[in-house]
Amino acid sequence: MTDGGTGRYARVRAAVLGTGLIGGSVLLRLAEAGLDVVGWDPDPATRERARLRGVLAPATLEETVVGRDLIFLCGPLPTLPSTLARMVELTAPGCVLTDVGSTKVEVAEAADRLGLGDRFVPGHPMAGAESAGLTAASPTLLAGAAWVLCPAAVATGPFRWLTGLLVEVFGARVVPMSAPAHDSVAALASHVPHLLAGALAGATQRAPLRDAVLALAAGSFSDGTRVAGTPAERTANMLLANRDRVLHELAEVRVFLDGLADALRADDAASLVARYAEARAARSALLDRRFASRSRRFDIDGEQRAEVTWLRELGGAGGHLTECRVDPDTVSYTAWLPVAD
């Protein structure tokens, strides 16, 4: 791992494998920040588009990853285990690997099976758009995003280093979580909303008065169906990779929805008001979150399990990191925790 600097990271040699919307945005931001970065995509036309945007895009995977300090795996979810297997063959032991996939358990388990657990840090930037491809990518898409990283006791060094880079280059709010916790939280925060958006948009598509519905559709319909515009294959990959957790959270949503329907059927205005007040509280908390700063320091070679436990508890409590500084003897974190409503 090189620790130069944009300040500290200018001499990092990075590669991005898969240059769609997220991977392309990672690639363009790293290039804009002045890092030595190359991109690769299995599609020759996409590689040519990257070159036209001023980024090096070698013809082969082997050329792309040789001598790199950091590699972002940004291909479709089903391809990540096989790409990790190639990294065993093609990268040096000091090369840090991370991904941007929307589920974490499967890829983390694949990395462990391949013996990459000490240098693979599962990741997921919580940003995106319904559009797809490098043509939709932007160096600002991920600016200030909540970016999940999954710390492990065997990889605290890569986690610390990558946290610092994401904060410095992307302005990320790094959310440390275990892979299972991420997948459980993402099921309700991201994956079930895709199901609900698909259901509303799909029902509209089948409605006898579809065009009249669309003529009257305003902000609530547009907001509620936005992610239904995501490429269908990408959405299916995400849902299938987290199937059990998504189905569990969907059942919880159905319970609440059934309660609304029961109140409506019974002409029970008080129950409707109570349930919508409960829902409004979550929405208000989302829009008006306040955080308090906390600092924490650990010995650089101390009990790493204690450090990882603290990090995971921070993410589980809704907190995030905005600084990770490694000194000769200590690692210091600046953390932010939500203030109680």
Rank of each mutant, 00 (worst) to 15 (best):
M1N: 08
D3M: 13
G4V: 03
G7T: 14
Y9W: 15
L21D: 10
G23S: 02
G24M: 13
S25F: 01
L27W: 12
L28A: 14
E32Q: 14
L35S: 11
V38S: 11
V38A: 14
V38I: 07
V38Y: 02
P42E: 13
D43H: 03
D43G: 05
R47S: 02
R49D: 13
R51F: 06
R51G: 09
R53S: 06
R53G: 01
L56D: 15
A57H: 06
A57F: 09
T60F: 05
E63L: 09
E63N: 02
V66W: 04
V66A: 15
D69N: 06
F72M: 09
L73R: 00
L73T: 00
C74H: 00
G75I: 01
P76T: 07
S82R: 13
T83C: 02
A85K: 14
M87T: 10
L90V: 11
T91Y: 11
T91Q: 09
P93L: 08
G101S: 12
S102L: 02
T103W: 01
V107T: 02
V107H: 00
V107K: 00
A108D: 04
A108G: 04
L114F: 08
L114N: 09
L116R: 09
G117I: 07
F120C: 06
V121F: 04
G123S: 04
P125F: 04
G128T: 13
G128S: 12
E130A: 15
A132T: 11
T135W: 00
P139C: 04
T140N: 10
G144S: 03
G144M: 05
G144C: 07
W147L: 03
V148K: 03
L149Y: 10
L149M: 14
A152Q: 11
A153K: 12
P158F: 08
W161C: 00
W161I: 01
L162H: 01
T163M: 05
L166D: 03
G171T: 03
G171R: 01
R173I: 11
V174M: 05
M177A: 10
S178N: 05
S178A: 13
A189T: 09
P193L: 08
L200G: 08
A201V: 10
A201L: 15
T204E: 04
T204H: 08
A207H: 15
P208S: 07
P208A: 10
D211I: 04
A215F: 12
A228F: 11
A232C: 00
R243F: 09
L250P: 01
L250C: 02
G259M: 05
A261H: 12
A261Y: 03
R265N: 11
A269R: 12
A270S: 11
L272R: 04
V273A: 12
A274D: 11
A274E: 11
R275V: 03
R280L: 08
R280G: 06
A282P: 00
A285Y: 05
A285M: 05
L286D: 10
L286W: 15
R289H: 07
R290S: 11
S293L: 14
R296S: 12
D299V: 10
I300E: 08
E307T: 04
V308L: 09
L311R: 07
G315P: 04
G315F: 06
G319P: 06
L321M: 07
C324D: 07
T330F: 15
Y333W: 14
A335Y: 10
L337E: 15
L337I: 15
A340V: 14
